[in-house]
C-alpha cells in the first residue's frame, strides 16, 4: 500500500509528541532546544504533506522553508543564551536559571 497522507501525519504526530515529551521532561537546556527542533520538524512534515496531497502548488513548501530558516535563527540565539547562562550560573539546568542578572 502506497503511503497516504495519514501515514505522514502519523509520523509527524509521533515526532511532535516525542518533542513535547523532551521539552517537558528534560532539565538540560540544550536537550529542551532539541525537543523544540523536533516539534518544528513535525510541523514542517505536516506542511509539506498537506501541500503534496491536498493543496498543490508550492505555498506549503515555501512556508516550510521559512520555518527552517527561523528554526536555524532560533537555535543560534537559543544556544547563545544557553552559553551565557552556563557562564553565569555554571550549569545549564533550566531550573537554575531564575535570575536575569548575575
Amino acid at each position: 500500500m502506497i503511503p497516504t497522507l495519514s501515514h505522514y501525519l502519523a509520523v509527524a504526530a509521533i515526532l511532535f509528541a516525542l518533542g513535547l515529551f523532551t521539552v517537558l521532561t528534560r532539565r538540560n537546556a540544550v536537550a529542551v532546544l532539541m525537543g523544540v527542533e523536533l516539534m518544528l520538524n513535525a510541523s514542517n512534515v505536516n506542511l509539506v504533506a498537506f501541500n503534496k496531497f491536498v493543496v498543490g502548488g508550492l505555498t506549503g513548501q515555501t512556508f516550510a522553508l521559512f520555518v527552517v530558516v527561523l528554526a536555524a535563527a532560533e537555535a543560534a540565539v537559543g544556544l547563545a543564551i544557553v552559553l551565557s547562562i552556563f557562564h553565569t550560573f555554571k550549569t545549564i539546568d533550566v531550573r537554575a536559571a531564575d535570575l536575569m542578572r548575575e
Partner: peptide
C-alpha cells in the same frame, strides 16, 4: 513527498548548521 529543494535545504541547514551548533553547545 517530492519536495526535493526542501529536502536538500533540510540536510544543509539542519544537519550542516543547527546540529553542529547543538553539538558545539
Amino acid at each position: 513527498l517530492s519536495a526535493d529543494f526542501v529536502a536538500v535545504a533540510q540536510v544543509f541547514i539542519y544537519i550542516g548548521g543547527v546540529l553542529v551548533l547543538i553539538l558545539f553547545a
